[in-house]
């Protein structure tokens, strides 16, 4: 049986106490919320924190409030299940509900939190392996080694951003609030990410992700498509999040396209987005936009299936996501 390495466990009762403990214990400590990403990684010895600080009972991280008119606040400790079932999120931020529902399995969504999913450790099939396996191959730079085993000549780590909700929150232009003993900051979610598999987040070790703010949703439609081999369990090998708003005359007022699992961070397809804005959607335009968006996908051989395949599927999924949104609009009439 694969077991956890020893650690001390601390259970703060308030967010203030949690940030204080995190600061006091220093880099040897890690916060744990749902545990669905951290604990398997610890069993594989990808992380061996001396201290775990439990966020599970912090009320400050709970709650879903607000409205699509004003925008919504989601506590980072809310489970993926509660997000995927929330009526306002399902109706007005469907991409987020879809992405939350697409994560792993019901059991993991019942325990896993949105905060944990956003801060999911980047993944790589040279890295998400047991201690035995990584020892066998000689370790990689992300943990215990010095080189990248996917691209041995490369100075950086190419582990993949694999969170389903991350590209969606980028496409929805969400903001996140981080708190620490040093204070708090609220940033656009894009600024939470680095294009670096080793250190994929700008979150400092003493910071706790407290909440996510979604902007008003009126007039926006959104969707999320996930490529994976099976209907559950699997991480995305491509995630496509699209949000768009149309003008009364049918032209596209604004569009946001973000890709997941194609790099170490969620990638925005700026060129494709710009090409869409102000245009009447035609099949030819959508195909062009899909091709443009796909240029941002640079998969490497460190996830399921082949690089070529994952690359080839990117424009297909982008176009299908756009088709879905535009067809749905036609179906229900302009809002």
């Amino acid at each position: 049986m694969l077991r956890l390495p020893p650690f001390r466990y601390l259970a703060p009762r308030t967010l203030g106490e949690a940030t204080r403990l995190l600061a006091e214990e220093g880099p040897q400590a890690m916060p744990v919320a749902g545990g669905t990403d951290l604990l398997p990684n610890m069993k594989r010895r990808q992380f061996t924190p001396a201290v775990l600080i439990g966020l599970r009972h912090l009320r400050e991280l709970k709650g879903i409030s607000g409205s699509p008119e004003m925008g919504m606040r989601i506590g980072a400790g809310e489970t993926l299940t509660s997000i995927s079932n929330h009526p306002l999120i399902c109706a007005h931020y469907p991409a987020l509900a879809l992405a939350a529902a697409a994560v792993s399995t019901p059991q993991l969504r019942n325990a896993g939190t949105i905060g944990g999913n956003i801060l999911l450790d980047t993944r790589c099939n040279y890295y998400n392996q047991t201690e035995f396996w990584r020892h066998s191959i000689g370790y990689c730079m992300k943990r215990d080694g010095s080189i990248c085993l996917v691209a041995p000549g490369s100075p950086r780590c190419w582990a993949i951003s694999s969170a389903d909700t991350a590209p969606v929150l980028v496409a929805l232009q969400a903001r996140v609030r981080l708190v620490s003993v040093r204070g708090e900051r609220e940033i656009p979610i894009q600024e939470l990410f680095y294009d670096d598999g080793m250190r994929p987040y700008t979150r400092e070790a003493d910071e706790i992700l407290q909440e996510i703010w979604l902007p008003p949703a009126l007039g926006w439609r959104s969707t999320y498509l996930k490529l994976r081999r099976r209907g559950s369990f699997d991480f995305p090998i491509l995630g496509v999040a699209v949000a768009l708003r149309r003008e009364p005359d049918g032209r596209i007022g604004d569009a946001r396209i973000a890709l997941g699992a194609v790099a170490s961070h969620p990638v925005e397809a700026e060129e494709a987005m710009a090409r869409l804005r102000g245009q009447q959607p035609t099949p030819a335009l959508l195909q062009e936009v899909a091709t443009l968006a796909a240029k941002r996908a640079r998969p490497l051989d460190n996830a399921d299936l082949t690089i070529t395949y994952r690359k080839q599927l990117t424009p297909v999924y982008v176009r299908r996501a756009l088709d879905l949104l535009l067809e749905a609009e036609q179906g229900s009439g302009a809002e």
Partner: peptide, 25 residues
Amino acid sequence: LGECGACTVLLDGVPVLSCLTLPLE
């Protein structure tokens, strides 16, 4: 590792994986 579901138990009626649950919590 949370990849099979065999260890599912209910916490307050909700299915979760006992292999990824800390008793202290």
